[in-house]
């Protein structure tokens, strides 16, 4: 686990889809081993920000560096191998493969592990997400909670230093959310840097040490969780979107 001061840095990230400016000049420093929550109304550009950080979508301008290394020119696969893990809001398991194979392929390709170390790492990822007994199930037979856990386990198996979570609590019941939050807390305690987008704010606040509010593609608040939640601009952005 890197204990560098800057685990992930974004400088001037911008993205347009046609005429729509989704992200506008986002600059962000994430300190190593910290847990950062990102909130914001629908359409604020939160998922796009994670896509740009992970390299799943190319940025129009700006740079991303991981532990001081500029990764702007690299695609998603290369960034994953350097230590950026990502989960999706709507889980995207490799449906035709077993749960264990889903994780093993991540450990061997993303984590660049071989043989028994790939196996051990995959088992640890299964264990850390409470999926040990589901290893031989085909991924497309899983329910929503297990699909979300598989997203998390698969991202973990790539051996990330920074974990990007996209609305992992969305659609889950209270007890299910509690269980996932416990897993995430443990990962954070173990030294993983976490950047977590979430609408279920009370779940987010149990882990996040810092909160960023995004609205219309810009950062409107950044700081301690309570301070950000009480910020008039944040309250305004949320109330504005709720109408």
């Amino acid at each position: 686990m890197p204990s560098d001061s800057q685990a992930l840095t974004a400088r001037g990230l911008s993205k347009r889809f046609g005429a729509l400016r989704v992200l506008d000049d986002i600059t962000l420093d994430v300190v190593g081993t910290s847990a950062v929550g990102i909130v914001g109304p629908n359409g604020a550009g939160k998922t796009t920000l994670l896509d740009l950080l992970a390299g799943a979508t190319p940025a129009d301008s700006g740079s991303v560096s991981l532990s001081g290394r500029d990764v702007s020119g690299l695609g998603a696969a290369a960034r994953c191998r350097l230590g950026i893990g990502r989960t999706h809001q709507v889980p995207r398991p490799f449906g035709g493969m077993t749960v264990f194979e889903n994780i093993l392929v991540a450990a061997t390709m993303g984590g660049r592990l071989r043989g028994s170390s790939a196996n051990d790492n995959s088992l640890r990822a299964l264990d850390a997400t409470g999926m040990l007994e589901l290893g031989n199930r085909r991924a497309d037979t899983l329910g929503l909670l297990d699909r979300k856990r598989l997203e998390l386990a698969r991202a973990l198996a790539t051996g990330p230093s920074v974990l990007l979570l996209d609305e992992i609590a969305a659609g889950l019941t209270e007890p299910e959310t509690d269980e996932l939050v416990e897993h995430i807390k443990q990962l954070h305690a173990a030294g993983l840097t976490i950047i977590w987008i979430e609408h279920v704010v009370h779940a987010l606040l149990r882990v996040a040490e810092r909160l960023i509010c995004l609205a219309s593609g810009t950062i409107i608040a950044d700081g301690g969780p309570q301070a950000v939640m009480n910020d008039p601009a944040v309250v305004d952005a949320y109330l504005g979107s709720a109408v």
Partner: peptide, 23 residues
């Protein structure tokens, strides 16, 4: 390992990229 990477890519190439597979 190659076979699993092929099946994962066949299933969803974009997601395969996100677990470190060069599709």
């Amino acid at each position: 390992q190659l076979g699993r990477a092929m099946r994962a890519t066949a299933d969803d190439a974009r997601t395969a990229e996100l677990v470190g597979i060069n599709a």
